[in-house]
Amino acid sequence: MPRIGMEPLRRKALVDATLRTIGQRGSLDVTMSDIAREAGVSPALAHHYFGSKQQLLVASIRSLLNRLRADAVAAMENLETPRERLSAIIRVCFHPDQFAPETVAAWLAFYVEAQRSEEVRRLLVIYARRLRSNLLDSLGRLCPPDNAVRIAEGVAAMIDGLYIRQSLRAGPSSSTASITLTEDYLDLQLRPFLRDAGP
């Protein structure tokens, strides 16, 4: 008989194994058997819980997005200034767990999949809109709306670009270096507005 409470644990194990397996391969060219082996369960159990590899991929993306959202909420809790909140968003995006090579490879594989899967594309669009909204919420308190939109797009583009460079091992190789680079860009963009605001 199945042990009570095992389903959530096995589902999580399969999602985590999906991210690891895709990250190690650098593509979605993995099978349910590969993932099940990595999770330490049978392929039949993986199919029982998720039905298909596509459903497991979607669950894995949702897991990444939920983790990002929870981390962002926790990081911004009790922060008083818009600038502090912007820094918190940047730190979350480059958290070592998210910016680990295997996780970066998984993110990029999901972006490739989004070109042919409407469901995957929709989830990644939600992520992009959420990031933009969080950035605009704070930027809108520091500069005029048009500037806030431009700066938000620039910060989001830097984050995406640094993920791509990390996957190529061609950019800053650490979370800290990526945070510093993005913060420098943000400081440069905000300087005229913070200077005009005075002490």
Rank of each mutant, 00 (worst) to 15 (best):
G154E: 03
N134Y: 02
R150Q: 14
A148F: 01
M158L: 15
G154K: 01
G140A: 12
E153M: 09
L135H: 06
D137M: 11
D160T: 12
D137E: 15
S133K: 10
P144V: 07
L131A: 04
C143Q: 14
L142R: 04
E153R: 14
D137W: 13
V149C: 03
L135W: 00
A152H: 02
V149K: 09
I159M: 08
A156D: 05
L136Q: 10
L131R: 08
G154V: 05
L136W: 06
L139H: 00
D160G: 12
S133A: 15
M158I: 06
I151G: 02
V149D: 09
G154T: 03
G140K: 10
I151W: 01
A157P: 07
R129P: 03
A128V: 06
L139I: 04
R150M: 15
R141N: 12
P144A: 11
M158Q: 06
A148L: 04
G140C: 11
C143E: 08
A148R: 05
I159S: 02
S138N: 12
R130G: 10
E153A: 13
A152I: 03
L131I: 08
R130L: 09
V155W: 00
R141P: 00
L142F: 03
D160V: 12
L139C: 07
G161S: 06
A148V: 01
L131E: 10
C143V: 11
G154R: 08
E153N: 13
R129E: 13
I151Y: 00
L131F: 01
P145K: 12
S133C: 10
L139W: 00
V155L: 07
V155N: 04
D137R: 15
A128F: 11
A148I: 02
L135G: 05
N134P: 06
S138A: 10
R129S: 13
V155P: 01
S133D: 14
R132E: 14
L135R: 02
L135E: 02
G140N: 14
R132D: 14
V149I: 15
N134C: 11
D137S: 12
I151P: 00
N134S: 15
I151Q: 00
R132P: 00
M158T: 03
E153L: 09
E153C: 05
G161E: 02
A152G: 08
D160F: 14
G140S: 14
A156I: 01
V155G: 01
P144G: 09
G140P: 07
D137G: 12
M158R: 07
A128R: 11
R129M: 12
